[in-house]
């Protein structure tokens, strides 16, 4: 299994506070990984660094077979390179229909002129319908996405992520605020996605993580505390200390 993303020795501090401290992390090209950690462990900042939102003070972020550095690229270019990100709160374009949301996310030329001259065609429409079926929103396509329920918005956002056809999916707390059935559906979508691409899930909920059935990385104070299967890390003494307090 080849390495898709390699983060090594990354540190970043905000006004003297070290949010990420010499963190190293690797993930393969078709792998599911869960990241857990207490509040303030640096999970979101970690994702910010990968997606280019935050520039680290030091360290390297190497991407893909050609081993390009992500640090010099803009957010949009990183996204085009194949990193998709889902935010903690569902962020879909509420003013636009589900169809438009998905069409917007579809992997296409992102150049303004190409977009201006874009004409909707049958294969693209079909792709959108497929995606809608995958996330269970087939009958909601013409509705404004603002009218969807919270869970539907989460799925729509995951659908938009999938439409981007990313090679690495970063998902921030996908199950927050979902009913048990919705969670199950979300798990299914993510596990399915991880067959063909790398998926990193940041989650608090141990139950959800257990269901994902994957390697787990534990972050604490901006650094990796432990890594391995869920059972392995939960039996780790440091992890227990961190979670339960000393």
């Amino acid at each position: 299994m080849s390495t898709l993303l390699e983060v090594s020795g990354v540190s970043v501090s905000f006004d003297g506070f070290k949010a990420i401290n010499n963190l190293s992390f690797q993930i393969g090209s078709a792998e599911m990984r869960a990241i857990i950690g207490p509040n303030g462990a640096g999970k979101t900042t970690f994702m910010d660094i990968i997606t280019g939102k935050t520039k680290p003070d030091e360290g390297r972020v190497i991407w893909g077979e050609k081993s390009v550095s992500l640090l010099k690229m803009s957010e949009a270019r990183i996204a085009r390179a194949g990193v998709g990100r889902k935010f903690q709160r569902p962020t879909v374009f509420e003013d636009q229909s589900v169809f438009d949301n998905l069409l917007l996310a579809l992997r296409k030329d992102r150049n303004p002129f190409a977009v201006l001259l874009y004409k909707r065609n049958a294969p693209d429409t079909e792709k959108v319908h497929d995606l809608a079926a995958q996330i269970g929103l087939s009958d909601q396509l013409e509705r404004k996405s603002g009218e969807l329920s919270h869970g539907q918005k989460q799925w729509l956002e995951i659908g938009m992520l999938l439409a981007q056809e990313p090679r690495l999916l970063l998902v921030d707390e996908p199950a927050a605020g979902m009913t048990p059935e919705e969670r199950e559906h979300t798990t299914a979508i993510l596990v399915e996605a991880a067959r063909t691409r790398a998926v990193v899930v940041v989650e608090h909920d141990m139950e959800f993580v257990r269901r994902l059935n994957c390697r787990v990385t534990v972050l604490h104070e901006g650094a990796v505390l432990a890594e391995g299967s869920l059972d392995h890390v939960t039996s780790n003494k440091h992890v227990i200390d961190v979670y339960l307090g000393r």
């Binding site: 905000f14 006004d15 506070f17 949010a19 900042t45 939102k53 935050t54």
Partner: peptide, 8 residues
């Protein structure tokens, strides 16, 4: 203000 406090 730097970092996440800047609220971007």
């Amino acid at each position: 203000l730097k970092g996440r406090a800047a609220g971007d």
